[in-house]
Amino acid sequence: MLVAENLHKTYRRHAVRVPVLNGLNLEVKAGEFLSVVGASGSGKSTLLHLLGTLDAPDAGRVLLDGRRVDDLPGRERDALRNRTFGYIFQFYHLLPELNVLDNVLMPAYIGHSVVGWWKSRSRWRARALELLRKVGLTHRLAHRPRELSGGEMQRAAVARALLTNPRVLLADEPTGNLDAGTGGEIVRLLRDLNREDGVTIVMVTHNLEIVSATDRVVRMVGGVVTEDTPATPRPFPHPRLAAV
């Protein structure tokens, strides 16, 4: 469904060229929970940004359902990010001025004019409340992000990413800042979403422990995919045990 073809990306810092992706190829299948592993600095985040049209590759193509998306005009890429892709970041990246509910509703706010929002607000609120119930944050609706723990913030971020019913969830080290227990909960949440709602998930991590919950693992070295294996069908450890 989501295909990366021969992606090249080089950062330029003054005169220094930092080649990050060197002809990377990857295919993400619909309904798949894919994890991308690799050393820090191997270009995992860069790959996610390119897949989600936040950044443009120097060469190569990104295709969604066979349609090229990396060179679309800005307006259409904005719409794609708003509806088709959902992002989850390592540092949660909630807006500090807004409460949990408003943060979760943010994609709907962005996608609508004032009038459009006014007309559809009850539908969106119902959707947001349902997601918050799913992630277990119903009791923290009016809290500001800084009043939440890391796990709760990440769960709010997951709810935000899911609000517009995206087809692809792009998670950049969602557990990177969490202890093993809360990290495990987040991964279980993603696992359930993938199983029950059929959301396609691309998750970047360097925690090999949580990789086992996913369908497929790709390893990145030197800006290309070097290894592509189905994950070992190992039962995901109970969060209590993992925390020990």
Binding site: L54, R81, Y87, L95, M106, P107, I110, R160
Partner: peptide
Amino acid sequence: YRDIGVMKSLGASSSG
């Protein structure tokens, strides 16, 4: 800065 990046990742346009 960071919030601007977040909003863009959620689909906000530059003019927005």
